[in-house]
Every structure is written in C-alpha cells, then in structure tokens.
C-alpha cells in the first residue's frame, strides 16, 4: 500500500485515505472548436505511461477532500514528492535517482 503525504494536511497517510485521479497537468484545450481529430484523441485518450517518474493527481477523499499532485516512481511505487494543485510542474531531474 502506498504511503502518501497530503500537502494540505501535512500528514503521511496510507493510500486508503486517498483516491487516484489520473495524470496531472493535463490542460483543457483553450479553444476546443479549433482542435482536429488527432488533438482530440490525444486530449481524451492518450496519457503518459512511463516506467519511472509520473506526475499524477490524488484527492484526500477521507481527509481534507482536496486535490493535490504527486511525483511517484512507477517502477518502485515510491511517492517521492507531493505539492499543491495549481503549482507549476516540478523539475523531474531533481528527483531522478537513476532508479528507472
């Protein structure tokens, strides 16, 4: 079971407290009408699936109820860093320990 630190409650808690909400930093298209089929496919269906560092959204469902973002290594399941929703995408090189 994952151990995840909620950046709002500042508490490291088991995964059962949280629900997963997919890849982070997926922006809605600013002008949907201008998108072609390929761009729609990418927005709707294509998500990163890396073996290594992954930026993802979690919700503290049984705590403060707020969404936040996390950096997790999908090759070890270690949650390396969590940060507030709305903060810019972190520099992944900072976390890369050559594990993947």
């Amino acid at each position: 079971m994952l151990l995840i630190r909620c950046p709002y409650c500042n508490d490291e808690l088991p995964e059962l407290e949280y629900s997963y909400a997919g890849e982070a930093h997926v922006d809605r298209p600013p002008d949907p009408a201008s998108l072609d089929d390929e761009a729609w496919r990418d927005f709707l269906f294509v998500r990163r699936n890396p073996r290594g560092l992954h930026l993802e959204r979690w919700r503290h469902a049984f705590g403060c109820g707020r969404f936040f973002n996390a950096v997790r290594d999908t090759a070890t399941d270690e949650v390396i860093h969590t940060y507030h929703a709305g903060e810019p995408r972190p520099d992944l090189e900072k976390f890369d320990r050559g594990a993947s």
Partner: peptide
C-alpha cells in the same frame, strides 16, 4: 487504480 510497473498491488 494507479499506473505502476511493480507487479505487486495493494493488499486492501
């Protein structure tokens, strides 16, 4: 629910 390559999964 999450993406992972660990081939393990949670006990819950």
């Amino acid at each position: 629910q999450y993406v992972s390559y660990v081939s393990r999964g949670g006990l819950h």
